[in-house]
Computed example of a mutant assay.
Amino acid sequence: MTLVVLGLDALDPDLVDPDEHPNLVLDHHRAIETLVSHTGEPSTHELWPTIITGLTPADHGLELDDDGVAWGNPLLEAGSSVADYLLPDALQSRIGAWLLTNTGADAFRTPATYYADNDIATVFDGREATAIGVPNYVVDPDSEDREHNLRRSLGDLFERDPESTGGHTSSDPATFYEQCMEMAMVRIARARRGVRGGRHELVFAYTSGLDLIGHVTYDMPALQMAAYDELDEFVGELRADLDEGDELLLVSDHGLQDGVHTHEAMVAGTDRAMVEDIGSVLDVADAIDAELDATDHASREEDPERQRGDGTEVRDQLEDLGYL
């Protein structure tokens, strides 16, 4: 049995239509509570470490400063410390936006070793698990996949602008949309590969595509909803790869409407009990652990009756597209 957890940044319970998006609600779904950072809104940087540990940001230690700039990059941390004493808030925000847009800094690249070094337990500990693009849980800091590469190369397709409605602007929203959906596609394809390979009891993948699109389509709601429609199809392909006994859990860190993070997240799953056990982002880790502890998770490599091919189809597709 494999438990697949797919993190869909900014999947909003108010924007998911069960009739139009059956693969985004699965068999059971619900809105859940999220946490608000020092900046006044939910933060991806803080929330995914919370989701994989069950700890508040204060307890796991990966927190944003009040100016939202101190994100684990030495340049940004130093600049933020100085700015706290010397610069007014408005100017700090502008400088932080420029740094994050122009220096290639990545807010979400804390190595996985951080957790062991600080005696913080995660859902991956002691498991046959794979983490695919989980923010602030980077297994190999020297390696990047297509989503990372695309995000770094967005340029003026996605520029930080604290004065705009969504906090960002795009020189070409249609092209930006296509790149974001490509990012989502490759991460979900990698999750499919993890399932088909049969070597893991936990496959945990993440994509930021929906969040990025939402930040620049606040005045183009049709484009944002097109992303939900396509994402539903992508998740449907993943769902079709599940074997008997496999489970799928979708998790978001917050919603996103009118270009701004909302204070409500959601979960959806193929297992009712797991969904019912999650009322907050703080509950996700315990629900994952409970599901894995309660079920036989012999890999297909160890259990010949569960083997179903070598899973090369998805890998071949990714290689053909230049993703691997």
Rank of each mutant, 00 (worst) to 15 (best):
S153W: 09
S153N: 15
S153F: 14
S153L: 09
L154M: 10
L154W: 04
L154D: 05
L154G: 08
L154P: 12
D156G: 11
L157S: 00
L157K: 01
L157C: 03
F158Y: 10
F158H: 01
F158Q: 00
E159R: 09
R160D: 14
R160P: 00
R160V: 12
D161Q: 07
P162C: 05
P162F: 10
S164N: 01
S164F: 05
S164E: 01
T165N: 10
T165E: 13
G166W: 06
G166M: 04
G167W: 06
H168V: 15
H168E: 12
H168L: 09
H168I: 03
T169H: 08
S170M: 09
S170N: 02
S170E: 04
S170R: 08
S171K: 06
S171W: 07
D172M: 09
D172Y: 05
P173M: 08
P173E: 14
A174D: 15
A174N: 13
A174C: 15
A174V: 08
A174W: 13
A174M: 12
T175K: 12
F176G: 07
F176Q: 03
F176I: 15
F176V: 06
Y177I: 01
Y177H: 04
E178F: 01
E178V: 02
E178L: 11
E178G: 12
Q179V: 10
Q179W: 15
Q179D: 15
C180A: 08
E182S: 15
E182P: 07
M183R: 00
M183V: 12
A184C: 11
A184Y: 06
A184S: 11
M185S: 11
V186Y: 14
V186N: 02
V186Q: 05
R187A: 12
R187Q: 14
R187W: 10
R187D: 11
R187C: 09
I188W: 07
A189C: 07
A189N: 15
R190K: 12
A191R: 00
A191E: 00
A191G: 11
A191H: 00
R192Q: 00
R192D: 05
R192C: 01
R192N: 04
R193K: 14
R193F: 10
G194R: 00
G194L: 04
V195R: 01
G197Q: 07
G197M: 05
